[in-house]
């Protein structure tokens, strides 16, 4: 099982949808919300603090 644990990114034979993967933290209860908050912090925060984006690139997350 060790080799599976360290296997990194999820490789499906179809596009699982990034948003669909992230949502599974939200619907996973209180523990999931903590994961979601960490996820937002690591992905969205760097973008927010990077400076202004060109028009049309801003979205709600």
């Amino acid at each position: 099982m060790e080799s599976i644990t360290v296997m990194s990114p999820l490789l499906a034979y179809f596009d699982p949808g990034s948003g669909s993967l992230v949502l599974q933290a939200v619907v996973g209860g209180a523990a999931g919300l903590v994961v979601f908050a960490k996820y937002l912090w690591t992905t969205a925060a760097p973008r927010l603090f990077r400076g202004s984006k060109p028009p049309g690139e801003i979205d709600s997350f």
Binding site: S18, G19, V22, G28, A31, F36, Y39, T43, D59, S60
Partner: peptide
Amino acid sequence: LQASRTVEESDSPRALSSSGFSKSL
């Protein structure tokens, strides 16, 4: 979330994994 460019452009599987995603979720 599916329409979000931020989510789309991030390496979500890796980011979720490092954020503590687990089977219980």
